[in-house]
Write a protein that binds this DNA or RNA. Sequence first.
DNA 1: TAGATTGTTAATCGATTAACAATC
DNA 2: TAGATTGTTAATCGATTAACAATC
Lengths: 223, 223
Amino acid sequence: MTARSSAESARDVPEATVARLPVYLRALATLADEGTSTCSSEDLAAAAGVNSSKLRKDLSYLGSYGTRGVGYDVDYLRYQIAREIGVTQDWPVVIVGIGNLGHALANFSGFRSRGFRVVALLDADRDRHGEQVAGVDVRPFSDLEQIVTEHGVAIGVISTPAQAAQDVADRMVASGVTSILNFAPTVLQVPSGVDVRKVDLSIELQILAYHVQRKAQAEAEAG
Amino acid sequence: MTARSSAESARDVPEATVARLPVYLRALATLADEGTSTCSSEDLAAAAGVNSSKLRKDLSYLGSYGTRGVGYDVDYLRYQIAREIGVTQDWPVVIVGIGNLGHALANFSGFRSRGFRVVALLDADRDRHGEQVAGVDVRPFSDLEQIVTEHGVAIGVISTPAQAAQDVADRMVASGVTSILNFAPTVLQVPSGVDVRKVDLSIELQILAYHVQRKAQAEAEAG
DNA sequence: TAGATTGTTAATCGATTAACAATC
DNA sequence: TAGATTGTTAATCGATTAACAATC
């Protein structure tokens, strides 16, 4: 619909690349902590666990931030990637479902250090209201809309049981949340334009189990 | 090296398909709970959140378990997928790092119901030893090798801080673990033949942040 | 200049999807 | 038989990778 201004950095970073940018960002942070000020694509690729061709291709979608014959300035590249992802600012996040997992998420230190700020913890269970987790009050789920509006929350985290998740997602979307990280083991239906990413422990384990079984079969056939 | 016996079910299920099989399995379980005994690829695809072409293509790698003009028998297909993944048996799992997240994982009920059994919880911190979490004793990390050998553990879960994770992975691999689910925010180096899957909260949030930012930019340009 | 390393090209590989023949 | 739905084909799309020209 809108003609893309050629002045702004080329959009249309492939999804696979977007998913790796945070990995590069972390690898760069580690290199910086170790006192490294310059690195080659080979160095950074090794730290990120990818091959250097892929790394250079990924970075090429953002711009030309390296120097031929020299490599990349760690701090500079770090800033450019952070800017591309959008974590030079802080994102307010709301967590719904303060059970075991919700507790762990609320206490997760990586939140704050990586560009996110937990502005509210919500739970449907009255008995939890008023309780403090990681210095934040647990409040009624019905406060969702007010909190989202007040803090301009765009990202919601769902750590409720599966049967509550769809309703929570619906309420989040209705309140203005456009991106959801779902830990509940269920498929969420959301309108187009809303992004959902899911983290599912038992799915991950089942994928691993498949490979264990396959390796065992391969051995049985070889032996 | 070994000629594949043509009698056994065709191996070489694409990785993308393997990652979806557990999703289908869960959707089938939901359908079964609702009393559905037969479903079309359209029904199952909707429940799994994929399109039906993809579903049928995925299932075709396992065999021909449907009936043209009719659909799939829910229980039968469920068993066939469970068998393919390898979750008709129970897999012993060890969790290392019993902090907030480790607690949540140990208490996770989906473990048992989905083909996994937590046989040990290990932590380097003496103060936690003897503590019980979800009915399982927390034991010293040095017990790892004995436990892996005794129970034939192939799958290990790492929920330690980042700086401990590589050492834990090394010790797991040395003990005989061939598949690792890593919750620590660090890239693990493992020998070939060992599978690692990682779950990383801050990476997931950053991917969402990127999309929120992109949507905001698109709106700004349109408006 | 010579050596090093980026950014890009082009070939390859794997995944998705629509369409439809096979068949219940 | 007619209608429904699978399993498969083939076209398309997106991701990966090696190779190398550009250039510091």
